[in-house]
Structure formats: C-alpha cells, structure tokens
Write a protein that binds this DNA or RNA. Sequence first.
DNA 1: CGAGCCAGTTTTGCATACAATCTCCTCCCG
DNA 2: CGGGAGGAGATTGTATGCAAAACTGGCTCG
Lengths: 242, 242
Amino acid sequence: MTSGEPAGPEHRVSEGHAALAYDRIRQAVVEGAYGPGDRLVEQRISEEFSLSRTPVREALRRLESEGLVVFRRNRGAAVRSMSAEDVRDLYELRARLESYAAELASVRGSIGSCDTMDEAAEQFERQVDRSDDVGIARDDRVRALSDTNNRFHQTIVAAAGHERLTQMLAGAVDVPLVFRALRGFERSELQRSAEFHRMTAHAIRRGEGTRAGRLMSEHILLGRDRLMEDLDQNDGAGRERE
Amino acid sequence: MTSGEPAGPEHRVSEGHAALAYDRIRQAVVEGAYGPGDRLVEQRISEEFSLSRTPVREALRRLESEGLVVFRRNRGAAVRSMSAEDVRDLYELRARLESYAAELASVRGSIGSCDTMDEAAEQFERQVDRSDDVGIARDDRVRALSDTNNRFHQTIVAAAGHERLTQMLAGAVDVPLVFRALRGFERSELQRSAEFHRMTAHAIRRGEGTRAGRLMSEHILLGRDRLMEDLDQNDGAGRERE
DNA sequence: CGAGCCAGTTTTGCATACAATCTCCTCCCG
DNA sequence: CGGGAGGAGATTGTATGCAAAACTGGCTCG
C-alpha cells in the first residue's frame, strides 16, 4: 500500500481503489461539483484522492460507459453536457426501461421486495410532508429525498431480477438530472410523485404488470416534463460547448 | 512506439492499441473462439497481440460494460456464460429497445437512411436466396448473412438518432447469440426474417412508428423462440460453471 | 483414507516511467 | 497589425515493475 494512511485499520479498501475513485468522481458529478463540460484531468483527480492515475483512468472509462462522461481521443474525459433534446430522449428511454422493470417486478418480485418498496414509498412521503422543516438545509433535504427516491426505484429494478436491465438503468438514469429535478419540484409535485410511487407499488404487489408499467412510465414522463420547463427557463438553449 | 515494426509506415495505429485489442477480443468472443466461461488472462492476450497489458485490460473492461465478459475481483475476466433464462430476458430487452429505435426512426429517419435500410434488406434477401450455393463454405455464408443483418438493424438504430439508445443496444445485442441463431436457421426461417425486414422497413419509410415497432419486436422475439429451441436441444440446461 | 494447511506459482491491481499528441503562447515575417 | 511557424508545457496513451490476492499441489496430521 502507499504511505498516507498512517494509522487506523478502519480505512477499508475492500472494494479496491478503482471502485473508490469511481464512487467519488460519480458523486462529484452527480451533485454538480463538476459541471457539464468540465474536463476531468487524470493527474489532478489522482492527486486529489492520493491515488495513481491507473485506477482513476479505469473509473473514468467506467463512467464513460455509463454515459456520465465523454472521452475524446488524446483529450481525455469531460463531464457530459446534454442538449434539451438529449434530456428528453434520455427520459423517454428511462421510462421504457423502468416500465419494463415494473412489469417484471410484478411477476417475479418477492414479498420481501414489495415490503422494501412500500417502505421506501412511505419514507418518501414522510420526507415530503416534512419538507417545510426549516431545521434542515434545503440541500440536505433534497439529498435525502433523492436517496429515498433512488431506493424506491432501485428496489423495483432489483425485484425485476434482470441483470442486464439493471446494468442499463445504471446508465439511463442520469442522476445529476434527477437530483436537479427534485430540487426544483414544488411541494405539490412531490406529493404527486409520492402518489405515483404508492400506486405503482400497489400494482406491483397485486401482480398487475401492465398497469405497473404504465404508471411507472407516466411517473417518469411527468418528471421529465417538469424538468424540461426548468431547463428551458434557466439555461436558455441548454447547450454548452467544449 | 515499441520496436517490432521495423519498416512500413502503413501500420496505422490511428485508433490506438486499446481499440485494436477491443476489436480483436470482441471478434474472438463473437465467433466463439473463446467459449462461455473461458478465462481471458491479460498476460496471454497481450502477448498474443504483442501489446502490453494496459490496453488489453482497458479493452476487457469495455467488453465488461457491454456485457460480453464478466470480471470477478482479483480473478480477472472471463467470457460471460448465460443460462437459458438470461437469454430469454436479454432478447426481450433487445426487442423493446429496438422496437423503440424503429419507432424513432419512423419519425426522424432521413430518406437516405431509408434507402440504406432497404438496400440492406434486399441484400439479405439475395443472400438467403443464394444460401444453397455450395461454392461458399457454410461459415462464410453465415458470416456474410450476419454482417448484412447487423447492417440492417444498425441502420435503423442510427436513423433513430438517439445516442444513448445506440450505446445500449451495443450491449443488449449479444452478437455471439445472433451469430449462433443465424447459423441454426432453416431456409424458411431466413425467408421469414427477410419478410419482416421488408415489412419493418416499409412501415418506417411510411412513418408508421407504432407498426414498425411492433414488427421489429415480433421479428426479434421470433428469433428468440427459434434460438431457445436450439439451446434446449444442444446444451441441455445451458448452464456452465466456471 | 480424508481434511486441513502451508509453500510455490499464477494472475490481478496499482504505481510509476516514458513517449506521443495536443494546446497554447510567443515571436517572426509579410 | 495580422497570421502562421514553432516550441514549451500540459495531458493522454502505453509499457513495465512490484506487491497482494487467489489458485495449485503436495504434505502432515487426525
């Protein structure tokens, strides 16, 4: 191992340095610490994390395969920037994939996964109800909401029991955008999302795959519509070069 | 560059060693030179291609993200082996994605892409008609058929103009299986495929997205059914361990 | 005779070194 | 004063070295 971890065996590297770099870069991109178009220079990142370039490079290529960053030959990685059309397309793709996942979960899901799903839906609802609390910083509330939302969706995807689909959804759910969308939601919109979560979960539990799929699709497309308004207002064209 | 290229500037490395390794490993996997479960040892492969391990490793991770190989921590890469259920699931996923692509192509496709599509469909048909020729080795015929088939499908995907979808289909179309499926097709089944190609192309050209999507889906699911019979007969359970 | 364990080998995962390419800035010439 | 050649610095792409982890085989001990 390198120097730099003086004492403390609690610094687990159990998943390897590449996975660690992946997690941290991903989080930075998701939360917007690196904005669209920003270059991700291997040397700088590796110094930032006290690693060599090798695992950083590996992490970047993995993020590329998930669509979060783009590579250009001899120019390295940069955070992907998307036009409004790209966002629209991506959300429709996601809607179809998660709709499929919901259908499968209706057929294959276990009781346990249904319980987890319900639990996440209820927690989401509680967090929405408490969304007026001034005790917590807005960003922290959004982050908690985002985590719970992800947990709900991921539970369904896992219940579908389709490895390839799971892998693809990791690349189709543009987490930076979901984060941003949740941030811009009004309370009533959050409540509507919670409603869709409940309805979808209910359909899945009853094994009504087609309805579950349609609800999920509609849920995601509603989110898309709201996000598109946001993008139109704030970014104008939403196009960033380089 | 390394030694080993004494004379001749024609040895273009224009795309980089990693891309070269990617192409060659991929081809080996697709055509079955490496079978499911075979380990892909970095050292051996790099010697085989006269490269260092670095680009080979990068190529392997890329193939992993496309689902052709699997990695296990500290155990490296192996060709992915799939159960019959996995194959069934994968084909349904592909059917949905390509169905979406066909819908989009109906709306967004240019005249030029329609022409390319028709041309590929016609070539496929001609190759099917000539599939009795004894002048050509069976494997070469299948390879040509596979190439043309890929060209048809990829033209539609390209016409959809959805970058992310394109990327995903690269990982959802399990080329080894498609190759194998075509290999097992009877002449009548090939003719039916050609028929579906024509019908789908027609629907796309007329802008009837829903029909195009359904035809594409049915086309792919028919291929799946045929392949599943094959797998059931030849592999028994189709499960291979380590 | 079988289970467990220890050493040797293989292979991965990470670090580092080096060469090729790109970028950008300067400087010279028209 | 503008534009292009060229060189310095920055950054990627590839090669290689090394330590840790996993597999293999044989040995001991029950």
